[in-house]
Simulated scan of single mutants.
Amino acid sequence: MTSLVFLIPIALFLGGLGLVAFLWSLKSGQYEDMDGAAQRILIDDDELEGRKDGR
């Protein structure tokens, strides 16, 4: 029973910390471009290097 005195506040703190991290990621734009990441995996690395060189 005495262990619950320590575990409940720790669990609430970690849950609040996770919520704050999630809200921060929403405000910083982490979830803005969901389709871009899905399309980038289909592009060849050679094509990207050619674009950087200006070809």
Rank of each mutant, 00 (worst) to 15 (best):
M1R: 15
M1K: 10
M1Q: 13
T2Y: 04
S3C: 06
L4F: 15
L4M: 09
L4Q: 12
L4W: 14
V5S: 07
V5E: 12
F6S: 07
I8Y: 13
I8F: 12
P9E: 06
P9W: 00
I10F: 12
A11I: 08
L12P: 00
F13I: 15
F13Q: 10
L14C: 11
G15Y: 06
G15L: 13
G15I: 08
G16S: 10
L17D: 03
L17G: 09
L17W: 12
L17I: 15
G18R: 08
G18D: 04
G18E: 11
G18V: 09
G18A: 14
G18Y: 08
G18W: 04
G18K: 03
G18H: 02
L19V: 13
L19E: 12
V20H: 05
A21H: 09
A21Q: 10
A21W: 07
A21R: 07
A21D: 09
F22L: 13
W24H: 04
W24G: 06
S25Y: 12
L26N: 10
L26M: 13
S28T: 13
S28I: 12
S28D: 13
G29D: 00
G29S: 03
Q30K: 13
E32L: 13
E32H: 05
E32Y: 01
D33K: 02
M34V: 11
M34C: 00
M34A: 05
D35V: 09
D35S: 10
D35T: 08
D35R: 03
G36S: 11
Q39W: 02
R40E: 12
I41F: 12
L42Y: 10
I43T: 02
D44K: 14
D45K: 06
D46Y: 05
D46A: 09
E47Y: 03
E47T: 02
E47C: 05
L48D: 01
E49D: 14
E49C: 03
G50D: 07
G50H: 02
R51S: 05
R51A: 13
D53A: 15
D53L: 14
D53S: 12
D53F: 07
G54T: 04
